[in-house]
Amino acid sequence: MAVTIQYLVVRNGIEKMTFTNKKEADAYDRLLDLAEHLDALLASAPVALGEDDREALALYLAQHQEQLAGPKKKTARKTDKAADIKVVA
Score class of each variant (00 low, 15 high):
2 A>M: 06
2 A>F: 05
3 V>M: 13
5 I>G: 05
6 Q>I: 10
6 Q>G: 07
8 L>S: 11
9 V>W: 05
10 V>Q: 09
11 R>H: 08
11 R>S: 14
11 R>C: 13
14 I>A: 12
15 E>F: 07
15 E>M: 15
17 M>R: 10
17 M>Y: 05
18 T>E: 13
18 T>Y: 06
19 F>R: 06
19 F>L: 07
20 T>A: 08
20 T>P: 05
21 N>C: 11
21 N>A: 08
23 K>E: 14
24 E>L: 15
26 D>Q: 09
26 D>Y: 03
27 A>H: 07
28 Y>I: 08
28 Y>F: 15
28 Y>L: 09
28 Y>P: 09
29 D>N: 15
29 D>P: 02
31 L>G: 08
32 L>T: 07
33 D>Q: 12
34 L>N: 14
35 A>L: 11
36 E>G: 14
39 D>M: 03
40 A>K: 13
40 A>F: 06
44 S>R: 13
45 A>K: 06
46 P>H: 05
47 V>N: 04
48 A>P: 11
49 L>Q: 02
51 E>P: 01
51 E>D: 14
52 D>A: 15
52 D>M: 11
53 D>L: 14
55 E>Q: 10
57 L>A: 15
58 A>H: 01
58 A>V: 01
59 L>Y: 00
59 L>K: 03
61 L>Q: 00
62 A>F: 01
62 A>E: 01
63 Q>Y: 00
63 Q>F: 02
64 H>V: 01
64 H>I: 00
64 H>Y: 12
65 Q>N: 08
65 Q>Y: 06
65 Q>A: 06
65 Q>K: 07
66 E>L: 10
66 E>D: 15
66 E>I: 07
66 E>Y: 08
67 Q>I: 13
67 Q>G: 09
67 Q>S: 12
68 L>H: 05
68 L>Y: 02
69 A>W: 03
69 A>T: 05
69 A>C: 04
70 G>V: 03
70 G>N: 05
70 G>P: 11
71 P>N: 03
71 P>I: 01
72 K>T: 12
73 K>E: 04
73 K>R: 05
74 K>Y: 08
75 T>W: 06
75 T>I: 13
76 A>R: 07
77 R>G: 03
77 R>N: 02
78 K>Q: 02
78 K>A: 11
79 T>W: 01
81 K>L: 04
81 K>A: 00
82 A>Y: 10
82 A>V: 10
83 A>T: 06
83 A>Q: 02
83 A>V: 10
84 D>N: 01
87 V>C: 02
